[in-house]
């Protein structure tokens, strides 16, 4: 089949058209979110508190057990459930029960939630409150010592381990009440610090929002002293690193150009 020049040119034009279509399909602008949206994102992992009933074994009971099973304190229980409540400007977005992962709910609790919010100044409240009541404070087990018994070291170690686990666990209440200015096309990330036992608002890489009023509340973390702590703050916190240039978005008195 001999090809005429007109067909060759037509073939080249068609091939060029196919290539253009290929490139267009390869780089199609895809709308993934409407303009002017913002998002509240909750994301954390934390170990729920263990609700358990402990009983101290007598020396005789302990001796009757195999060597590797001689724990002074025998505890039975489960991991607590929590009520996660999220509201923006008083409107409740979520009021759900959350629990630890796994079939037995004995794994860390993982939370990942996203809520679309309208950009602007918003009052965001996030709280995580324990639902299950303690059966019995096991601080006795925590503080126990085994003076005079042959298993003193073991019992001390048990107590320490228990205290460490308790220190890592979620408190009975973690609450954040914050008024934020949320910028469009930005995500406000609320996460939980298992060290500070409070919610933390993460700063975006670029100027996104700032806090005008921020209230935190943590309750019942240290049960051995049984105190309720509350922290109130009203400050002007720049949540971004120093911007490359000053923008007029900042209200007076909160200029990021001022020394931090």
């Amino acid at each position: 089949m001999t090809m005429s020049w007109s067909r060759r040119i037509a073939g080249l034009v068609v091939a060029g058209g196919v290539l253009i279509l290929l490139r267009a399909g390869s780089l199609t602008p895809l709308r993934t979110a409407p303009d002017g949206t913002a998002m509240l994102r909750l994301s954390w992992s934390a170990r729920p508190e263990r609700i358990e009933q402990c009983r101290r074994l007598s020396d005789a009971e302990l001796a009757a057990r195999p060597q590797h099973m001689r724990l002074r304190w025998e505890c039975e229980g489960r991991f607590a459930r929590y009520l996660l409540r999220v509201s923006v400007d008083g409107r409740v977005l979520a009021a759900d029960t959350v629990r630890g992962g796994g079939l037995r709910s004995d794994r860390p609790m993982h939370v990942f939630r996203e809520y679309a919010v309208i950009p602007g100044e918003r009052r965001v409240t996030v709280s995580l409150r324990r639902i299950d009541a303690e059966v019995r404070p096991d601080s006795v087990a925590d503080a126990a010592t085994a003076a005079g018994t042959g298993a003193a070291d073991r019992e001390t170690r048990e107590g320490q381990e228990r205290r460490v686990r308790r220190a890592e666990a979620l408190p009975a209440l973690v609450r954040m009440d914050s008024t934020l200015t949320v910028a469009a096309q930005r995500v406000v990330l609320v996460t939980y610090s298992s060290i500070a036992h409070r919610f933390v608002i993460k700063r975006p890489a670029v100027l996104a929002f700032f806090t005008t009023e921020h209230t935190e509340e943590t309750e019942g973390h240290d049960k051995s002293v049984g105190v309720k702590t509350a922290h109130h703050a009203k400050d002007c916190v720049a949540l971004a690193g120093p911007p490359r240039s000053c923008t007029p978005l900042w209200p007076s008195g909160c200029s990021p150009c001022a020394p931090w």
């Binding site: 399909g25 199609t28 895809l30 709308r31 993934t32 913002a38 096309q185 670029v206």
Partner: peptide
């Protein structure tokens, strides 16, 4: 921590 309203997608 940003929301892209559109991305150059390979369809």
């Amino acid at each position: 921590l940003s929301i892209s309203s559109q991305v150059p997608a390979d369809l």
